[in-house]
Design a protein around this nucleic acid. Structure first.
Lengths: 349, 349
DNA sequence: CTGTTAGCGCCTTCAT
DNA sequence: ATGAAGGCGCTAACAG
């Protein structure tokens, strides 16, 4: 009785193992392993290599990731931890990551409930998969502490992060300044800000940069002229409606929103309230979502380069996995202001 | 020399194994396994259980998913294969799935490039993870054939699928009929259709159901009045602009789009062309995306119940994983028409 | 109740 | 260039 017979006798159609391939090809499992992993160069004879390849094809063998991971101590998984997958930002980030990872690593996303970092339990389970590396969007301190290990990790979109942690950020501060500069160039002198209330670092940076730049450019933003809402069209719409009477009485003529989604809400409310945009009120968003170019009016927004964020993060991660220190630990991608109809009457053309 | 010492001597901070915990607690690894997996009821003495728990806590032990999976022959992973993650539909589906899976299974998403099913290679790599089950969005025949195995699998949003495969679908045909009925009730007699060109089954069903219902309701849809574009705002906008002159000359007064995204494009183009909506042309979408309620005009659309799709699919998958035959192999969730400003002048109020 | 044992499938020395 | 053998960490089956 050999392995082949034993397995053939069992009821469930047993999976094809390296041992079966070895037997079929008349070689040892070691040789199969070498060939299957493309490490046969100069270590396996042409003749045997061919026989193994043939056996693999005939039997339909493929390397079992679990067994392989156990033996190697690490899997070929790269896990992207992404709260809030509905952010259109991600589709592009993922494309960028995939373009760099190719077939060498397998990308999987771990999604949590809207905007929440994984719990300690979830984190441990992730680690239990022995991923080759982790890509983490907007990680919280707690999450990074839970990780506590020498696992290759790159943070994305984490402005306030510990400078010793590899990260790829977008220069949202620069974007916020560009918004202010744009307002100033249009002659606005009193502005308001609609913040997002999820408390992520990037939002904080956007707001502070906006306020600082406003001071610098001599644009007045009264404390009472900073509101905050959930990142949701309806919530933003409501919040704006509630605040407008006061803002109007203060002479506000420009409003910057923390996200395009909120800008949509503002546009919606403005329509109902009969506020002409951009004539009576100039509005800006942030993120440059796909619909922002075609809404009515189209939205002046800060464009972020999501694909490039994904690419660079994956590049850094690969360096880490390979045991190198990344060329630069953290990098910052520029953002750019896209001027459209919500701030200038001819911007949409 | 024991295991503990040996590991302490090595340079890399060795991971905590069940053997270490066993030694620390003065029991066998089997006992540790029982306790760690919550299977200790009536199989481990209170005293030992307590000692093990303490050791686990002190050492910071957690079960290694890889070792566990190898021993059990299957992991606790549920993989959601999702082409086109940018579809806002998914965030809700995921929420539904998570609510059912809870802590028993770990959900990970496998994302491919926009709208493409995973390649055979990718599929094999997925299988190499030995997932407990697969949730597959809009699977292609090829993909299902690549799978070829007794793996628990539930398809989502796969209208044309083999009736022997467990699936959760949405009644998009009903939705398309509702659109036609709505047009008819408004007195339209000549309509056009803007299809999506990705070739997914759901789009085919939407189109055919629309055309059938049109015949039934006596609404004329000339063959030349069915156009098709990528599911993209810009592409739809262009396609509409190109077709409008002809449609107009045919007396078309109503246009159904295969997706809300395309409806946005139409709205955009209509604005540039000076076509008043809904007065001159009534427009409908499909999917009821978040922005559809607040665009200008807001879009009449077919609402799908994504969260429920996720819930039910996960429920079915659990039954399959547990070795039961699901109560109903396939189920169909109703869809409903949401009437808004793009078809009736007062719909947006 | 508890410990021992025998793998799960693979990869990697180490001899040959 | 090749094969035998020893784990990787865990769990299921079996003995006590």
């Amino acid at each position: 009785m050999n392995i082949g017979e034993k397995s053939a006798g069992k009821q469930p159609p047993r999976r094809v193992t390296a041992a079966m391939v070895a037997e079929h090809a008349g070689v040892s499992t070691a040789t199969v392993s070498l060939v299957a992993n493309g490490k046969s160069a100069g270590r396996v004879s042409k003749h045997n290599e061919e026989r193994v390849r043939e056996a693999i094809r005939e039997l339909g063998y493929f390397v079992d990731g679990i067994g392989s991971s156990l033996a190697k101590g690490v899997s070929s998984l790269v896990i992207l931890v992404a709260p809030d997958i509905s952010n259109p930002f991600f589709a592009k980030v993922i494309a960028g990551v995939r373009s760099v990872l190719g077939n060498d690593y397998q990308l999987l996303l771990s999604v949590t409930d809207a905007g929440i970092s994984p719990s300690a339990t979830e984190t441990r389970r992730l680690l239990g998969l022995r991923p080759a590396g982790l890509l983490v969007h907007a990680p919280t301190k707690v999450f990074l502490e839970d990780l506590a290990g020498p696992l290759p990790l790159v943070a994305l979109d984490a402005p306030g992060i510990d400078p010793s942690i590899p990260a790829v950020n977008m220069d949202v501060a620069q974007g916020a300044e560009a918004v202010v500069a744009h307002f100033a160039s249009l002659g606005h002198t009193k502005a308001a800000y609609l913040d997002g209330s999820t408390g992520t670092d990037t939002l904080m940076v956007r707001r502070e940069a906006f306020l600082d730049a406003a001071t610098h450019y001599g644009i007045e933003v009264l404390p009472g002229n900073v509101a905050s809402s959930m990142i949701d069209v309806g919530a933003a719409s409501d919040e704006f409606s509630r605040n407008w009477p006061m803002w109007e009485s203060c002479g506000v003529t420009a409003l910057a929103c923390a996200t395009d989604t909120q800008a949509f809400g503002v546009l919606h409310a403005a329509r109902h309230l009969g506020i002409r945009i951009p004539h009576r009120l100039a509005v800006t968003g942030f993120d440059d979502l796909p619909y922002s170019a075609t809404s009515s009016p189209s939205i002046t927004s800060v464009q972020l380069h999501a694909t490039e964020v994904g690419r660079q993060a994956a590049l850094k991660l690969r360096e880490l996995i390979d045991g190198q220190a990344p060329q630069s630990l953290q990098s910052m991608l520029p953002s750019s202001l896209v001027v459209r109809g919500s701030t200038t009457a001819d911007g949409g053309l």
